[in-house]
Write a protein that binds this DNA or RNA. Structure first.
Lengths: 226, 226
DNA sequence: CGGACCGTTGAAACCAGTCAAAGGATGTGG
DNA sequence: CCACATCCTTTGACTGGTTTCAACGGTCCG
């Protein structure tokens, strides 16, 4: 099953990861949490649904999407191992989320979180800084969507995934080109053409489907005008 | 001076506004803050500068922009009266901010804020929810940038400003069309053409420069496919 | 009064989208 | 284990919305 390549995070019970990113929650015993698994394509939550949990991705990948009435779709974010999502501060979900591959997550009760964060300043401030960081990243992505060419977007995307998937050598992407397209504000055909072009320029190699090897990271950075 | 139309917030010493949005800071005596005024076009902070303050806009308007190496510019946000910015969670600024018109703000020391938020859970959690709300709005804007047509973007922008400026009847925009364009990921010519078209359709009236009157809000909502 | 900026309009070029078709990979069920 | 259906990817040709380039008038401000 080639997909397992994309499941990067060490599954040695996620404790080391919890310490670095999520001990905010780890040492708050009053916050109930449990592991949940989702299969490929499975819905996690949908639009206008009441928000019950925040999620910490342990393994796999999640897409957060929003559809316009006429069917146009946009991906607001990918959530990869080591990241937290579902903490939008709204009672109702404004988007829907689905697992891209088999995904396991830690689900945290929002009502517990809300209560504890009102008491535990360290927890609340940690979550605030986490949200602020997400906000900064979202606004950087807005520059990509508003002002970058197709090739620049794809180059930036590859570098972003290289960073976030923390992979060595060969990168195995968990999402299809259609998802990349909706994340980058492009059509899937355009994404395909850009990847083909980057390969022709000897900057990347697409060995198997969704598997990227970098030949020239510096060259990629030149395309990604940040 | 026509610009004053854009300065909406009741200047009766901003206390009522502080109560609703910012009493988080108001009752924390250990947080030093002071009023600051900026003239039209004045820089507030610039890229790669060390972050010292967060700001609460009392009156006026601010743009947060990011430039690519080749000069392309994108506006990440407008900050209007009643809104808070500059709390990005990073030591160095990732963007620059300028006053669009004469603007007065409450400047809050970040080191004080950081210290107090580590102690006061109510403050920290309030700021967290504020950041989460900003994140949600930023991601909604991403849909606009990634998937909407020029006319849809301009329609959505007018409705957004109508909401955020809390104006009755005639709306006086504090930003020029070039700024709108960079906020919406369009060229200034396209923005102009869209506004002209909306006027030809009897949906808005542009009486004076930057002054918009709504004839048909329902019609605008039809263009804004959310 | 003059200059800079802003807004408007037209014409042409171009990038990316759309439509279409074909091959490849994947997964399912017989 | 194979056949088949579905989804994904790729490529080409065409279309079209937006950008770019250019020119002009208006407004604001020094």
């Amino acid at each position: 099953m080639a997909i397992t390549d994309a499941m990067i995070v060490p599954t040695d019970d996620c404790s080391s990861w919890l310490e670095t990113h999520f001990d905010l929650l780890g040492n708050a015993a009053a916050i109930r949490s449990n592991r949940q698994s989702f299969t490929k394509g499975e819905r996690i939550y949908t639009r206008n649904e009441t928000a019950h949990h925040a999620y910490a991705v342990l393994e796999g990948a999640v897409r957060a999407s929003h559809c316009l009435p006429d069917g146009r779709r946009h991906l607001r974010a990918f959530h990869l191992p080591g990241e937290i999502f579902g903490l939008d501060g709204d009672a109702l979900r404004s988007h829907e989320t689905e697992a891209l591959v088999k995904t396991t997550m830690l689900a945290v009760r929002l009502d517990d979180l809300d209560r504890e964060a009102g008491l535990d300043a360290g927890l609340a401030w940690g979550l605030c800084n986490l949200a602020a960081g997400e906000l900064r990243k979202a606004r950087e992505h807005m520059v990509l969507l508003g002002r970058k060419s197709a090739l620049e977007r794809v180059a930036a995307f590859l570098l972003e995934m290289d960073r976030r998937l923390a992979t060595k050598g060969v990168m195995s992407l968990p999402m299809c080109e259609h998802d990349m397209a909706d994340y980058l504000g492009l059509s899937n055909e355009t994404v395909s053409r850009c990847l083909t072009k980057l390969q022709a320029l000897r900057i990347i190699v697409l060995s198997k489907r969704r598997t990227v090897r970098f030949l020239d990271r510096a060259g990629l950075h030149e395309f990604d005008a940040s």
